[in-house]
């Protein structure tokens, strides 16, 4: 983890109380006939803990995955843990921002970014002064 990421985590008030390690989720970006699709593996994130924000040219996904274990358990082997998934995807101008749809199923977030319908070519009338 880089230094910048850690200072960012400390600066946000809600994460300052319980700092979680930041994880960049594995992401697939692909194109189909009806637009772009983004798939993100975010296991353990519930729908309420997931936020998707669109800034100007950036789509930011943040989600918190909490461990389902109780305090009484002792761990014999740990290969994954609670974390905060953060990933930004930049949007191209060809994406129709009004119709972006997101769906969370079985720990995979699917974001559909439809292509912007091309404006039909038209002729501009020339006015005579």
């Amino acid at each position: 983890m880089t230094d910048t990421a850690e200072t960012k985590t400390a600066a946000t008030p809600e994460t300052a109380a319980k700092p979680l390690p930041r994880v960049s989720p594995a992401t697939d970006i692909l194109e189909r006939e009806d637009g772009f699709y983004v798939y993100m593996d975010i296991p353990g994130v519930r729908r309420e803990d997931l936020k998707i924000d669109i800034n100007e040219n950036e789509l930011l996904v943040t989600g918190r995955a909490l461990q389902g274990a109780s305090d009484k358990e002792t761990f014999l082997e740990v290969q994954f843990g609670p974390g905060e998934y953060v990933r930004a995807v930049s949007l191209s101008d060809r994406v129709d921002r009004e119709n972006i749809a997101a769906n969370l199923k079985d720990g995979v977030l699917t974001i559909h970014l439809p292509r912007l319908e091309k404006a039909a070519p038209r002729r501009i009338p020339v006015n005579q002064a």
């Binding site: 274990a69 002792t74 079985d106």
Partner: peptide
């Protein structure tokens, strides 16, 4: 740990049971 093997596993126990957890999205 993340790079070791797929899928990542957590193994834990308490008084009554053993728990094996794994991240298997999708």
């Amino acid at each position: 740990g993340r790079r070791m093997a797929y899928p990542p596993l957590n193994v834990s126990e308490d008084e009554t049971a053993y728990y094996v957890r794994s991240e298997l999205p999708g």
